[in-house]
Design a protein around this nucleic acid. Sequence first.
RNA 1: GGUUCAAAGCGGAUGGUCGCUUGGGUCGGAAUACGACCCGAGAGGAAAGUCCGAACGCCUCUAUCGGCAAGCAAUUAUAGACAGGCUAAAAAUUAAGAAUUUCUUGGUUUUUAGAGGUCUCGUUUGUCUGAAAGGUAAGGGGUAGCGGGUAAUACCCGCCGUUGCAUUGGUAACAAUGUAAAAGGGAAAGUGGCACAGAGACUAUACUAACGAGGAUUUUUCCUCGCCAAAGGUGAAAAGUGUAUGAAGGUCUUAUAUAUGGGCUAUCAUACUCGAUUGGCAGCAAUGCCAAAACGUGCCAAACCCUGCCUGGCGCAAGAGCAAUGUUUUCCGACUUUUUAGUCAGGAAUUCAGAAAGUUAGCUCGCAAAGAUCGGCGCAGUGAUGUGACCGACAAGAUAAAUGACCAUCUCCUCGUUUUUAAUUUAAAAACGGGUAGACGAAAUUCGGCUUAUAGCUUUGAGCGAAAC
RNA 2: GCCCCUAUAGUUUAAUGGAUAAAAUAUCAGGCUUCGAACCUGAGGAUGGGAGUUCGAUUCUCUCUGGGGGCA
Length: 127
Amino acid sequence: MFPKENRLTKIRDFNLLFKHGVYISGQFLDLKLLKLAKIPDYFPKKEDPAAFKNQLLIGISVGVKISKKAVLRNKIKRQIREILRLSLKKNEIMSGYYLLFIAKKEAVGKEYGEFEKEIKNLLGKIR
RNA sequence: GGUUCAAAGCGGAUGGUCGCUUGGGUCGGAAUACGACCCGAGAGGAAAGUCCGAACGCCUCUAUCGGCAAGCAAUUAUAGACAGGCUAAAAAUUAAGAAUUUCUUGGUUUUUAGAGGUCUCGUUUGUCUGAAAGGUAAGGGGUAGCGGGUAAUACCCGCCGUUGCAUUGGUAACAAUGUAAAAGGGAAAGUGGCACAGAGACUAUACUAACGAGGAUUUUUCCUCGCCAAAGGUGAAAAGUGUAUGAAGGUCUUAUAUAUGGGCUAUCAUACUCGAUUGGCAGCAAUGCCAAAACGUGCCAAACCCUGCCUGGCGCAAGAGCAAUGUUUUCCGACUUUUUAGUCAGGAAUUCAGAAAGUUAGCUCGCAAAGAUCGGCGCAGUGAUGUGACCGACAAGAUAAAUGACCAUCUCCUCGUUUUUAAUUUAAAAACGGGUAGACGAAAUUCGGCUUAUAGCUUUGAGCGAAAC
RNA sequence: GCCCCUAUAGUUUAAUGGAUAAAAUAUCAGGCUUCGAACCUGAGGAUGGGAGUUCGAUUCUCUCUGGGGGCA
């Protein structure tokens, strides 16, 4: 589990991401991403623009359609979270982004190593 | 020893690195902000399904109950009871004055009497709390043998009856024993249904066939009347509990001069059987046993319904509080800009401020301690369960939602190879190597149940089975 | 999380507890046409799974599974 300040939780942020974000497709994971520096006009007025621009929020979405079983869905989420936590620790992800990882149906039963490769691949495509 | 079924129990352990949620402490800090460090806690037997029952919370009702107020009435009441106070009388005691074995005035106490008051019985209206003062009437919903346990109409235990299966007995109807199952009031209150087939499916009796008489006809056959309700086939179910024996009657029939014999049977009698009724006995009761006589009623209520009993509604996204943010619409105001325009006024758009309404999101509490709690032991009970000045255990609390990721070791399980033993297959043991906790499934206010899913292991019971030694 | 509704041919809808479960459309085959469409004729195809009540269940009851909806 990565720290609380890096979690994407607010509906406001999700709406921003879905309205203005970009979509990157992978083998069994999709990535929705939003570079905050590109949309300064839509920042909430209460927030400090400079601080807002430099945050890094990450969310994970595993829907019911992936699997009916809560156990499997939770396991996928935990694996992704652990990989992202280690990456954050090593400062491998640039700040100033909203990221949302969305699991596809093929993600059921994948190993830890495969998730690691897929996420590295997706993060590499950002630029 | 194997296998199947049922019931009960278990549902990996220890450690390392890096993290998350949460409680406490220390330090820094103005600080209950925040940060650092230390110590502790952190998914299940079903946490699941949401099928029942509760706790808890909010809402709603008033014809029942409670409080308060007002009115009316009071014919067990022209009554009874009563704390303190008031008035009068008497007695005792005390003080003052007059007088001297006494008198007057006042106080206190006790007793008696009286006036007045309160209560004892209702009723109407208003109002308030109130669902632990109430759940009655109607309506709606639920439930259903008896007894017990439980906070509980959930659920559990025991028993009774019913049904299925097996065995035994009996000519048979049926009975006894064992075992299993279940949502088990009422069909002897009413309504309704019982397809197809069949004469007929509940005030049935038509049809075919048989017999007798008459008529038509060469015969075959047909028609009418009588006799008769026995036989037939249909169907899940067939006419009234069924079985056996006997009597006399009816009908048909064989032989025969008749008597008589035989088949079927409405009816009657006797014995047994089933159900219901009444009486007696046993049992807490459901119910069982015995007896009697004037009893004989198809099935379906998981069809409508009737009877008894229970029941206000909604649910933690309940609900309480905080803050007034984002956004939409409308209204009003301001001024800058743009546009319309020759100019002014006016209109439209944009921006800012305010108000109202709607919508969406947020934070805190509810919500994490200990009680209808769980286990052991003793006692009571067939059991569910109850009980104890007995012993012990119990601090998860997230919210795009924590309890994790990656490893190491050990057992459990499993695959392969080799060796040894008994040896045809094969079985057991040991060693080595590989896979490695591998099934079902993760808290979301909290409990009690039910249902469903479940690799593997352990225990108990029942059945099957006769392979190997 | 809590509370509800629902399940019939590939799809959309019927069927009072009663015989072989009805219709439209879609699919397939044949006809018509030079070929296709339209049209005509015909065929196949279903009560979500499992129990129970009943002589008999799409229908009544229970349970599991799937689908859908509401609640701040």
